[in-house]
Design a protein around this nucleic acid. Structure first.
Length: 874
RNA sequence: GGGCGAUUAGCUCAGUUGGCUAGAGCGUCUGGUUUACACCCAGAAGGUCGCUGGUUCGAGCCCAGCAUCGCCCACCA
């Protein structure tokens, strides 16, 4: 007999339990070496501050997968780490130093970077602490950071290999440019903001062209028309002089199918340096590309002395005025709504411009395949399975339309591009890049020592694309790498399918000729109670740490997992978390009861099959069923389904019925066995409370490393299960009657039963029925006896009669019976129709028809008895 | 413009390969100190499964169309 507190206070236990696990080395991969390892690389949170509920969800989901597989005896590795998050981190630190009146340029590169490093260190500590608080069983001995020496080495190795294969090239191409960050952005690093602006129609020689950005049009010289457009047929190929912003220009008509005949005049001029579409056209035909806007968002010398140096917005007004003066302004549409592309990190409008950058060629064949082809194939062939599978389509579409990936960034924080140039003027090869794994000290050509490294850094997703294997020691073929790669699951939010998941597949299939992971589990976004995104500006965010403080980590985990399925958003709010806290407390109290009634040795005794009552057999049978279902569904990653299934079984069967029955006829070994098994089933979901209780049950092992429950064929009791369910139904029915007639809870009622085939079962369990339904002197009647003033109801085939003469109103009983008779009659009529239907009898599976027949016969019998009873009431 | 998702009780959501009178939690209502738990127990009310057709013996589930809400991608001369 062990006493524990009345309520579970998570705070008192969680820290100690986590330390115990960690000390025992329980997070390190052990398990049966013959079994296939199970590995998850934790998506490394940005080292920029704090974790939010999305991270908490990720940790909860992955921890469930990991704990389950660990209990299945597989060598299990969950590798944690953090990401240096180039732009995000740099922006954060820039903001911080701005408050001190500083900026990075006056500070200098070295000083600024050391400031960033300090910030990252603090942030990493916060994150480590938060991951621990969630109970995440990550292997801290293998923690990694994208800027670790070893990972940086992996980045360089990857760069070098891609460079040698000609996949990485330097080119003058159009890129997305953020004028605030002073850097390029990848296509998917843009966000779109709807904006209303003016739309200008301008007279350009014989045509009218439309534009939202007149300030880019100084050097428009090509007019594109559709080859089938009759209006311009004669003009195609011709050159003519037209008056334009800063004087006359020579314009040329070119036919290309990209022109839309329906739109405006059907003719358009192009600005190759500042529009992706126009740039492609210029490449196709070899048009001149003139830069109009520079990296600061100002007009270049191409605008002439009147415009050079003006910011784009100022220039816009001035250009329009100038055109108007010349009579070239046709009209202005004030209500033009369009999507403005903005920087996803700072929100500044993005300026497409041509710049010299490093790119990854996604269409060049290496070893017979392009990067695109490899990426598509991995998913098409089923080597990678995406959950939910509807995201396959989204993935394919994205890869198919992928352009060359711009990987250079003009920011300071990140992996410096491993390219050097010889700056010795005497060297003939000073234009050739030197790409090297280690910092070179001399030029390989002229042996000079004047080398300068490319000032740019790499896109942060370049290094995270290597995450599943750079963390395992690649490019060295370490034993970890051999054992744990490919990983099994990559679990992350669907919002970074492109950013990260696709990049990992692209990099890994090329570099390793294998997939990075077998399954992609995409979780949804966290929303508030009204379904809104959580955001700082709305102030509707919930801090996971506050919730853990108030309700415990187990409750927080449940609120993030139950009721959620891959790909679907999830609403999270405090009442929900409080509800799961109640569940955790219920676990605690069920164990409290068992602990109070059992001795230590009871937790170690085997179940003796000879001692099993029908109730024992029932709960053991149900436990088998639940275990079977849970195992099957967890293998398919149906985490919510399993959690809810066990929740339900535990609460509404084990607690509500079996524990109550155990107060009447206890079987200590069964009580202990079922509870211990439930703790195991729940452990992946609520690791803390289950581990605490496990300890209280005199277990010498840790629950985290216990074996996952197996179905025990000895405990399959189909018949007892059915019989016991009937008994429980009898109790429920009586309770219902008692409530209907407002019988006092304490008042014991005389009752009789007619159960036909079930009579023996009822007799065996009469104690239970009596106690749970508060009866006295219950009897089983073999024959119908008249008992005036009693009330009657049916639990399946069992007729229940409560002797309530003088207690209840006969008229009320008549009304109730009448309603029940009507209800049943309607039901039987439906069934009858079905059973008379030839089509149904022929086509439906036999068991279904058989079951309906049974139901019909049983219902019919019940109806007869009810009618009889109704009549007897006079 | 293309695509995807959602629509089931007042709220949040389950609902397997189509087959019991469609379920749970929260909330509401009625009762309740019983060998753990009031963070609890017993019971109840509450649903034209978004709409319209179709397939089928049978549809919440499959098909077509529509509506509303949300998301993603593309385009915007």
């Amino acid at each position: 007999m062990t006493q524990i507190p009345k309520a579970y206070n998570a705070k008192n236990y969680e820290k100690g339990i986590y330390q115990k696990w960690e000390k025992a080395g329980a997070f390190m991969p052990k398990g049966d070496p013959k079994k296939k390892p199970f590995t998850i690389s934790l998506p490394p949170p940005n080292a920029t501050g704090q974790l939010h509920l999305g991270h908490a969800m990720m940790l909860a989901i992955e921890d469930i997968m990991v704990r389950y597989n660990r209990m299945q005896g597989r060598p299990t590795l969950w590798l944690p780490g953090t990401d240096h998050a180039a732009i995000a981190t740099q922006n954060k630190v820039e903001k911080i130093i701005a408050e001190e009146g500083l900026d990075r340029h006056t500070m200098g590169r070295a000083k600024f970077l050391s400031r960033v490093k300090k910030y990252v260190k603090e942030s990493q500590n916060t994150i480590r602490n938060q991951i621990r608080q969630m109970g995440a069983s990550v292997d801290w001995t293998r923690e990694r950071y994208t800027m670790d020496d070893q990972l940086t080495h992996a980045v360089r190795a990857a760069f070098l290999q891609m460079y040698k294969d000609g996949l990485i090239y330097r080119g003058h191409r159009i890129v997305n440019w953020c004028t605030r960050c002073g850097s390029t952005l990848a296509d998917d690093e843009l966000e779109y903001r709807e904006e209303k602006s003016k739309f200008y129609y301008l007279k350009y020689g014989p045509v009218v062209i439309g534009t939202a950005r007149p300030e880019t049009k100084f050097h428009d010289k090509i007019i594109i028309v559709h080859p089938k457009d009759k209006r311009y047929k004669d003009l195609v190929g011709k050159e003519l002089t037209v008056p334009w912003i800063t004087g006359d220009v020579k314009a040329k008509f070119v036919a290309d199918e990209s022109a839309d005949m329906e739109m405006g005049s059907g003719a358009m001029t192009i600005t190759p340096a500042h529009s992706f579409v126009d740039f492609d056209l210029a490449q196709k035909y070899g048009f001149e590309v003139v830069q109009i806007i520079n990296e600061k968002g100002e007009i270049t010398e191409a605008g002439g002395e009147d415009f050079e140096g003006l910011h784009v917005l100022e220039a816009r007004d001035k250009v329009v005025k100038e055109l108007d003066k010349k009579g070239l302004l046709d009209h202005i549409d004030e209500e033009y709504v369009h999507n403005l592309s903005c920087c996803y990190r700072c929100g500044t409008a993005v300026e497409p411009l041509v710049s010299e950058q490093w790119f990854i060629d996604v269409n060049k064949k290496v070893r017979g395949k392009t990067l695109k082809e490899r990426s598509l194939e991995a998913v098409r062939k089923g080597d990678i399975e995406i959950l939910p599978d509807r995201f396959n389509k989204v993935y394919f579409h994205w890869i198919e339309n992928l352009r060359d990936w711009c990987i250079s960034r003009q920011i300071w924080w990140g992996h410096r591009i491993p390219v050097w140039h010889c700056v010795d003027k005497k060297c003939k090869h000073h234009k050739e890049p030197i790409v090297s794994l280690k910092d070179p000290d001399k030029c390989p050509k002229c042996k000079g020592t004047k080398l300068k490294q490319d000032p740019d850094t790499l896109d942060t997703w370049f290094s995270s694309g290597l995450w599943t294997f750079s963390t395992l020691g690649w490019p060295k073929k370490t034993s970890d790498f051999k054992k744990f790669h490919p990983t099994q699951v990559l679990e992350t939010g669907y919002d970074i399918l492109f950013f990260w998941v696709a990049r990992m597949i692209l990099m890994t299939t090329y570099l390793l000729d294998e997939v990075p992971f077998e399954t992609v589990y995409l979780h949804g976004l966290i929303r508030d109670k009204q379904g809104r995104k959580m955001s700082k500006s709305l102030g509707n965010g919930i801090d996971p740490l506050d919730m853990i403080e108030n309700y415990g980590a187990d409750a927080v985990r449940l609120s993030l997992v139950l009721g959620s399925s891959p790909g679907n958003d999830l609403r999270v709010y405090e009442e929900k978390i409080a509800g799961y806290r109640n569940f955790v407390n219920k676990i605690w109290n069920s164990a409290r009861y068992v602990l109070m009634n059992l001795e230590k040795e009871d937790f170690h005794t085997e179940i003796d099959p000879k001692t099993l009552s029908r109730a024992d057999k029932w709960i053991l049978h149900r436990l088998n069923q639940v275990t079977k279902q849970a195992t099957k569904s967890l293998d398919k990653y149906s985490l919510s389904e399993v959690g809810m299934g066990v929740y339900d079984f535990f609460w509404s069967e084990y607690c509500d019925w079996y524990l109550e029955i155990s107060k009447i006829q206890p079987n200590k070994a069964v009580l202990a066995h079922v509870l211990k098994t439930i703790l195991k089933l729940l452990h992946p979901y609520t690791p803390y409370v289950t581990e605490v209780l496990w300890e209280k049950m005199d277990q010498k092992t840790l629950l985290i490393t216990e074996e996952w429950p197996k179905v025990d064929p000895m405990f399959n009791f189909t018949k007892a299960n059915k019989e016991m369910q009937a008994v429980l139904k009898v109790v429920s029915t009586i309770r219902q009657l008692r409530a209907d007639y407002k019988l006092k809870p304490g008042q014991k009622i005389k009752a009789s039963f007619q159960g036909a085939k079930l009579n023996a079962v009822l007799q065996d369990n009469m104690d239970i029925i009596m106690r749970l339904a508060r009866l006295e002197n219950p009897v089983i009647e073999k024959e119908e006896k008249k008992t005036p003033g009693s009330i009657v109801s049916f639990a399946g085939p069992v007729k229940i009669k409560l002797m309530t003469k003088g207690i209840v109103d006969v008229n009320k009983e008549k009304a109730r019976l009448k309603a029940e008779i009507q209800n049943l009659t309607a039901y039987l009529k439906g069934l009858e129709g079905k059973l008379k239907n030839e089509g149904y009898i022929h086509n439906a599976p036999k068991q279904i028809v058989e079951a309906d027949k049974q139901r019909y016969l049983e219902g019919k019998e019940r109806l007869e008895k009810m009618v009889q009873q109704f009549k007897s009431l006079g």
